[in-house]
Write a protein that binds this DNA or RNA. Structure first.
Length: 314
DNA sequence: AATAATATCAACCGCAAATGC
DNA sequence: TGCATTTGCGGTTGATATTAT
């Protein structure tokens, strides 16, 4: 007998979140920290199910999230990792700390898949035939899930500006900012109120939260360690990989910031117990699998080669 | 200017894994 | 150890925005 879905309850609100709901959620998390999602709607009075609260926080309100256009570097990373891991978006997202798995998944489905298809079509005409199927490595989940299936809460640069924000509906973001300021929820405010549709403007809230994050008690000693540039931005590593003329996938993998690095973990003081439990160094078998994948990824590396200096030409 | 077609992405749903008792 | 509950992930949907006709 399965349990009833958590969102079946009568009176549960669905659909887009309002600024007011966001403020309630953010202020609650400010006080209690994320986690224990079951109790969030109960304690806040939000007419949302726990899942919805978690999703909203994870994908939009959490500090450090970058929204908007993906850079060619990020595209390369995603294509590369997707070829290795398949549609394991959470694992892929762990290598792009500023992006959410949902964002990456959407971007893959709406942009990259098409680009790859187009690229393959062109390749079919001008080059030897590519492998019949995408080179998805059949990762044995039982063996490596605990290491690869990571969904840690890594904060990149919360203050980074997102130049790709849409011009529309900027008033909403300003409105939220004012609301937050009025309620004295945050120590600092952000003057940049030019933004996007409401949902997409949440990085403003995230930035506002920066002060709160800093004041939150860190959960581990590494919380204060400032990540290096490459730790913050795996794309740098990807670039370095090419700059260095590396030719093997393992070399690239060595340069990728391990998503489990302590310097990144707990940066927000937000890592939940289970997430910490899941995080650890790459297992030998994982490294082996990566290396075994090398040959299969050669095509993609060629593809990525261009993408790291110039936009991908699919 | 109006309508249709297409693209985008926030949010939902169901399942499975993890956790607690 | 087994069951109930909670959490996280990935696929999918649907509302909205944009572009084409």
């Amino acid at each position: 007998m399965g349990r009833p879905p958590c969102c079946d309850k009568v009176g549960i609100k669905k659909g887009p979140w309002t600024p007011e709901e966001d403020i309630i959620l953010v202020s609650y998390i400010q006080e209690h920290g994320p986690g224990n999602w079951r109790s969030v709607p109960i304690n806040t009075g939000l007419m949302r199910c726990s899942k919805s609260c978690r999703l909203r926080w994870t994908n939009y309100l959490r500090p450090g999230i970058r929204r908007g256009n993906f850079t060619p570097h990020e595209e390369g990373i995603i294509v590369h990792l997707q070829s290795l891991l398949g549609n394991r978006w959470a694992a892929i997202a762990s290598y792009l700390p500023q992006r959410t798995d949902n964002d990456i998944k959407n971007y893959w489905n709406t942009h990259l898949k098409k680009k790859l298809k187009k690229h393959q079509a062109i390749g079919a005409i001008f080059a030897p035939p590519p492998p019949s199927e995408p080179s998805i490595i059949p990762l044995p989940t039982t063996a490596i899930a605990g290491h690869v299936d990571l969904h840690h809460d890594v904060i990149g640069n919360p203050l980074s500006k997102d130049s790709s924000l849409r011009p529309a509906a900027c008033s909403n973001a300003a409105e939220v900012t004012q609301l937050i300021a009025r309620r004295s929820l945050f120590a600092a405010t952000d003057g940049d109120s030019s933004s996007s549709s409401y949902a997409s403007s949440m990085d403003n809230i995230s930035r506002l939260l920066n002060g709160f994050m800093k004041s939150s008690p860190p959960q581990n000693d590494a919380a204060d360690i400032k990540p290096s540039a490459t730790e913050i931005n795996p794309l740098l590593s990807f670039n370095q990989y090419h700059m260095a003329g590396a030719t093997t996938l393992s070399a690239f993998n060595d340069m990728l910031p391990s998503p489990q690095q302590p310097a990144l973990m707990g940066h927000s003081g937000y890592d939940e117990p289970r997430q910490q439990h899941q995080q650890g160094p790459l297992s030998p078998i994982e490294k082996l699998l990566f290396e075994e994948a090398e040959e299969q990824v050669v095509d993609l590396m060629d593809l990525s080669d261009g993408c790291c200096s110039v936009p991908m030409m699919f």
